[in-house]
Design a protein around this nucleic acid. Structure first.
Ligand SMILES: [Mn+2]
Ligand SMILES: [Mn+2]
Ligand SMILES: [Zn+2]
Ligand SMILES: [Zn+2]
Lengths: 141, 141
DNA sequence: AGACTAGTTGATATTAAATCTCAATTTCAG
DNA sequence: CTGAAATTGAGATTTAATATCAACTAGTCT
């Protein structure tokens, strides 16, 4: 299904569905996690793909543009992505010790943000909320 | 006042209060806005300071460590800072067209986040919420 | 199917934010 | 004042990400 959406997106933009793009797409959707470009590149290599780093970066940008993938955050060690197709919107808590990521969602929080936008006459399109702190297991140490 | 806090911080860490650090501190607190390292460097030059980029970067890190300044966000064109001493906590809306920044605060939003953390047994320390969209003036075009 | 054309690829170069190196200089405790 | 320890600036280095471009494909048209 992501494959069809991506294909439609590419046709729309008069771009081509290449072997490399398919491989990147498949790898991105082979697991639900949070990954960086280099990490993705190594996984692809491991899976037998010969796609280059350049193609991984280029395809990631296309996947973000198509709406199938989101760039979650930028750290000092590069960007973090996740595929969002097949998953409902959520935000993240990040443990400062073990880097574990806790996903959460609150309908109430979303509504509250809408209200705040209205109050400031701002037309909100997207948001990213990242809570930093300590996860349960790390706090017990 | 930020000066005294910074001084205490430096003594604590057995670091020295140099001309360059004072100049950076003063420039950072001379206006309340959101700035990048290069921007800050150019303002300093303009104000007659001879502090180098290296010192600007180094001092910014110290100011963040001391709690006087926060790194708000990282864009593809570098980090954005603001001084927080003398200002209450707030989050940001960013206009995708004119890059205007709208600051906002909601006690309710903060409480809600605390509750969500509790529900996920996460010990929240800090958070950053950035809402992207269109500001009032840009929407009218 | 074959051929044409516009888009893609990978190797490599380049860019740019941020950090590192280190000799010369400055701070500040004693 | 003095000296040890920290800091500075210039330039080198690191590294994520993008740009370049000749060789190569994908997909369309006949
Ligand atoms: Mn997620
Ligand atoms: Mn602000
Ligand atoms: Zn943890
Ligand atoms: Zn605007």
């Amino acid at each position: 299904m992501p494959r069809e959406i991506f294909q439609r997106f590419l046709i729309e933009k008069r771009l081509k569905l290449t072997k490399e793009r398919i491989e990147v797409l498949n790898e991105v959707f082979s697991a639900h996690d949070h990954f960086g470009p280099e990490q993705l590149y190594l996984r692809l290599r491991n899976a037998g793909s010969k796609a280059s780093r350049a193609s991984v970066y280029r395809t990631l940008n296309l996947l973000v543009e198509s709406g199938l993938v989101e760039k979650i955050t930028r750290t000092d060690k590069g960007s973090v992505y996740e595929h969002t197709y097949g998953h409902t919107h959520h935000d993240h808590m990040v443990c400062s010790i073990c880097n574990r990521i806790v996903e959460f969602y609150s309908e109430y929080l979303e509504q509250l943000q809408d209200e705040i936008c209205k109050k400031h006459k701002f037309s909100g399109v997207s948001h990213s909320l990242e809570i930093k702190g300590y996860c349960e297991t790390c706090r017990k140490q």
